[in-house]
Write a protein that binds this DNA or RNA. Structure first.
Length: 393
RNA sequence: GGGUAGGUUGAGCAGGUGGUGAGCUCCGCUGACUGUAGAUCAGCCGUCUUCGACUGUGGGGGUUCGAUUCCCUCCCUACCCA
């Protein structure tokens, strides 16, 4: 059956090389793409609609971004994949000349569950913009991603709530496998990589099976999907362990989709994950939550209105270099647009610096102590007191 | 001086022509956010000993079993006329 040849003929669109480390299954690597190289482990900011919200490509570069994400579903609705292609492709359209990975629309099967119907051939969405029917199939998803011209395309998958009955999780997984074969068959471009996605919820048997199935296809990279959707940290870790075990010494790059909380990086990296993406750093930034070496700060809190200190004294970003917490607190209260940019610049810089620190720690064997340090930051301000004591100042 | 419309919990408003005014929107306080329908959402937002109780409709007085509502008077605001 899927003994089809590699979708690429001649030189592969990407190449990945890595060296193992002394830290669990963690590895240090380098991923070469048509638009540049990426150090791994690496974090990819999410730019769903051809923009990482509130940031320019130059902001992204300054924060240390090496690769970003775009989205099939959103861009096909607006402005339209064919239009993007006519305008020179996604890189040119959004003026980002670094690598781009496009998601397949699979996540919207989950996040827009109330707006779609799934069948074995594909998914019909009621557009969240105007309600018009929109059909997404593995073939159309491949076509859209080709039109967008990303460096890395993702297979079209179905993810489900892992707490559903096993039969439902399995059904979505099996469907994902069939779609994966169709994506491989439909994917034509030689200069675009294609990653497969492992599903199976938090059922370890299903995950093992899915890992083997997806790894059996000629994908350029392997992704773990369907996690960080509400399951426990322990369940995510156990699932990643099983996947890592099943993949064995498979040399392809490994991508954990949708994970981006500081401590989650450590859990992924030590289980062999090379790539992460997440909306979390940028989304929470826009909502006033800043990640710092003092933990999570909610800049909307009254305690910051007179705070002349920078967000994070050790952070090199523009926000921390030039502005005070009091100023940011003011911007958030006044709903000034600059708040969103300055906050996003910081959280992204923080996140990418953390990934860099993780790579350095892997290189010198200090991963465990780095994790302890970061955990300390978030234990203080990150854990929510169930009932805060009456505070007197 | 005369007239009109008003004075409701920080602000702005609903409501209320005799029988529970704590209802809304801002502001404010707190929390959430993990392949982005979210620069969004949720809770709280008079006081207290907070599964309840109390106070409160500009001030004062009157009628009434009962007044935010009716009557008298005073004060304040906006506008109109002198």
């Amino acid at each position: 059956m899927p003994s089809s040849p590699s979708p690429t003929s001649g030189t592969p669109p990407i190449s990945f090389s890595f060296t193992p480390t002394t830290t669990g299954r963690a590895r240090l690597g380098r991923l070469a793409t048509p638009h540049g190289d990426i150090d791994t482990p690496q974090f990819m900011p999410v730019g769903t609609q051809a923009t990482v919200k509130s940031l320019t490509p130059s902001d992204l570069r300054n924060a240390g971004t090496q690769i970003i994400l775009g989205n099939t579903y959103h861009l096909s609705l607006r402005p339209g994949a064919e239009r993007v292609a006519r305008l020179g492709g996604l890189h040119r359209f959004m003026a980002w000349d670094g690598p781009i990975l496009t998601d397949s629309g699979g996540f919207q099967v989950f996040s827009l569950a109330h707006l779609r119907q799934v069948d074995d051939d594909g998914v019909t969405f009621a557009s969240h913009l105007d309600g018009s029917p929109q059909r997404l199939t593995p073939e159309r998803s491949m076509e859209i991603q080709t039109l967008l011209g990303s460096d890395i395309a993702m297979a079209f998958d179905q993810l489900v709530d892992p707490t559903l009955a096993r039969a439902e999780v399995e059904e979505a997984m099996v469907r994902t496998h069939r779609w994966a074969e169709r994506c491989v068959a439909a994917h034509q471009r030689a200069d675009q990589a294609l990653f497969g996605i492992i599903q199976g919820g938090v059922d370890l048997q299903l995950r093992r099976r899915s890992s083997t199935e997806i790894a059996g296809l000629p994908f350029d990279g392997l992704a773990v999907g369907g996690l960080s959707v509400g399951e426990s940290k322990a369940a995510m870790a156990a699932t990643l362990d099983v996947v890592a075990e099943a993949l064995g010494d498979d040399p392809r790059v490994r991508y954990l989709m949708g994970v981006g909380a500081p401590l989650d990086f450590f859990a992924g990296v030590e289980r062999g994950i090379d790539l992460f993406d997440c909306v979390l750093p940028t989304r929470v930034a826009r909502n006033g939550q800043l990640w710092t070496r003092e933990g999570r700060l909610n800049l909307r809190n009254a305690r910051f209105v007179d705070d002349a200190a920078p967000l994070d004294a050790e952070c090199p970003c523009e926000t921390c270099r030039d502005y005070s917490r009091a100023y940011l607190a003011h911007l958030f209260r006044a709903e000034e647009l600059l708040a969103y940019r300055l906050a996003s610049v910081h959280n992204l810089t923080y996140t990418l610096d953390l990934m860099r620190a993780i790579r350095a720690a892997l290189a010198d064997g200090s991963f465990a102590s780095l994790r302890e340090t970061v955990a300390g930051h978030y234990e203080r301000a990150g854990t929510k007191p169930s009932k805060p004591p009456v505070t007197a100042r």
